[in-house]
């Protein structure tokens, strides 16, 4: 190959044979198919982003990254007496759960809660509204006494578990407390039959007066 012809040869447009092009296209399509199967076949996204669940029972003090949490004995009724406003009624049953929060490291304002009902459904608890949990900022070392109230159908009471966490929107990769409330169908029946209003006091640093 002469020196003058080599550059001319390089400038000429060479095309690979048809078989090679077809093979390459087939390989690209195969890679796309395999990629789709791999990303959609196994549901790993939820597990990778899952929170660290710390389990416990009523009365146990759960040690989370950001706070020490104790869930006390729940009560219930068909009528709720909130701190502010008039009585609230529900087509199901009100569940009122006292929660004690002691922050660790710096002041923490817990805002996330949800109830995993015994019927398999998830009952949302927001920072305000009919089903609410709002403890406010807790000073480290100074226990904060808050109350969570949620309305559920009676079939969700038996076997219900309560989850409490820090950030209301995002609990990924952080500690979440899960407490088995130890409720039975007998509790559900008793509460759906009664209409004595159950109190849901606002959060405070003073322990609630025990009747």
């Amino acid at each position: 190959m002469s020196a003058a012809e080599a550059p001319r040869r390089l400038r000429a447009r060479v095309r690979p044979p048809a078989g090679r092009t077809l093979g390459a296209s087939a390989a690209v399509l195969a890679a796309l198919v395999v990629g789709h199967v791999v990303t959609s076949a196994f549901p790993v996204d939820e597990r990778v982003a899952a929170p660290f669940v710390r389990e416990g029972a009523v009365g146990d003090t759960l040690d989370l990254r950001y706070a020490r949490l104790t869930v006390e004995e729940p009560t219930g009724s068909t009528v709720l007496a909130p701190e502010v406003g008039s009585l609230l009624a529900t087509p199901g049953v009100w569940l009122v759960v006292p929660v004690t929060v002691e922050a660790k490291g710096q002041p923490r304002a817990l805002a996330f809660a949800e109830l995993l009902g015994g019927d398999g459904r998830t009952y949302t608890v927001f920072t305000g509204g009919r089903s609410a949990f709002l403890p406010g900022a807790a000073q480290p070392g100074v226990p904060r006494y808050a109350t969570l109230h949620v309305e559920v159908p009676p079939e969700a009471v038996a076997g219900a578990r309560l989850r409490v966490g820090l950030d209301v929107e995002d609990q990924r990769h952080d500690d979440v407390a899960e407490v088995d409330l130890g409720l039975t169908q007998a509790d559900a029946d008793a509460w759906s039959a009664g209409d004595t209003p159950v109190r849901a006091p606002a959060a405070s640093d003073a322990p609630p007066e025990h009747p």
Partner: peptide
Amino acid sequence: VLVDGSELSPVQPGLAY
């Protein structure tokens, strides 16, 4: 909500409001 006048939020499953 008709029975007590409160704003309906959150809407829980399994209940008829």
